[in-house]
Amino acid sequence: MTTVTMTVNGKTVSGEVEDRTLLVEFIRENLELTGTHVGCDTSQCGVCVIHMDGKAIKSCTTLAVQASGSQITTIEGLATGDELHPVQKAFKEHHGLQCGFCTPGMVMAAVDMINRLGPNLDEATIRHELEGNLCRCTGYHNIVKAIKAAADEMAALPQAAE
């Protein structure tokens, strides 16, 4: 067993893990943050996307020991109190979800996309950037619309939010 320590959603956390424990398992089982989902375990679906040190990663193919010492943000850490993150708000307002299973990973990927590429996102860019995040319900139209709306809103903010 190895002790891992990291900052998750602004809180320092530690735990004992086997070296083979996936980061998604540590987040869900040890920290009881179940917004990060487990889908394919092969890095294909994107439901496990979180941010590690400010970059989107798939937590189903990252070991918890690899994340020790890192800053982790999960879907639970995006909102500020009762105020939803602009991407969360846009997904709600533009019906960018149906069953909700892929939504946390989509939102986390979208925040990363906007932070990296800025607010001037067109539909083709958004669709290209979402490769690796699968949705079986929506057909992506409203997801793309929500991401574009969030990018526009974030551009109007004094400073990009994460």
Rank of each mutant, 00 (worst) to 15 (best):
R136D: 12
E76D: 13
L63T: 10
A149G: 10
T138Q: 11
E25G: 06
A64G: 12
L97P: 01
C102R: 01
G81V: 01
A79S: 15
G77P: 08
Q71I: 01
T103W: 04
P104M: 11
L117A: 13
I75D: 01
D82P: 03
I143V: 14
L23G: 03
K92D: 14
E131M: 11
A160C: 09
G10Y: 12
T103C: 09
A64F: 04
A146G: 09
T74Q: 01
M154S: 05
M108N: 04
H95C: 08
G46R: 03
K89V: 04
G118I: 05
N133A: 12
G46N: 08
G15P: 04
E153A: 10
E83C: 03
K89I: 04
G100K: 07
S70M: 06
G77R: 02
A160F: 08
C102P: 06
K89M: 09
P158Q: 07
S43H: 14
V49A: 12
E18I: 08
A124D: 15
L78C: 06
L130I: 04
D19W: 04
S70F: 02
V107W: 00
T125G: 08
F101H: 07
S43C: 14
A56C: 11
T12I: 13
V38A: 11
T74E: 04
K89D: 12
T80K: 10
C45M: 12
T80F: 05
C137M: 13
D82S: 13
F26S: 00
D112E: 10
C99E: 15
G39Y: 02
L97M: 14
T7R: 12
C135M: 12
E76I: 00
E153I: 05
C135Q: 10
E123R: 15
C45L: 11
A156H: 08
V8G: 01
L23Q: 02
T138P: 09
H94S: 10
V17T: 05
T61V: 14
S68Y: 05
R127L: 14
T61L: 13
Q159C: 08
D53N: 15
N30A: 15
L121Y: 04
S70N: 10
L33H: 07
L22M: 15
A160R: 08
L23H: 04
A64E: 05
E93L: 08
A149V: 09
H85K: 03
T21D: 10
V17E: 02
T73V: 14
A155M: 05
P104Q: 11
I50N: 00
S70W: 04
G77K: 00
R20A: 13
V8Y: 00
Q98R: 07
G54C: 11
F26K: 00
G139N: 12
D53T: 13
L97T: 03
A124V: 14
I126P: 00
V17N: 00
G54T: 08
I126H: 02
E76M: 08
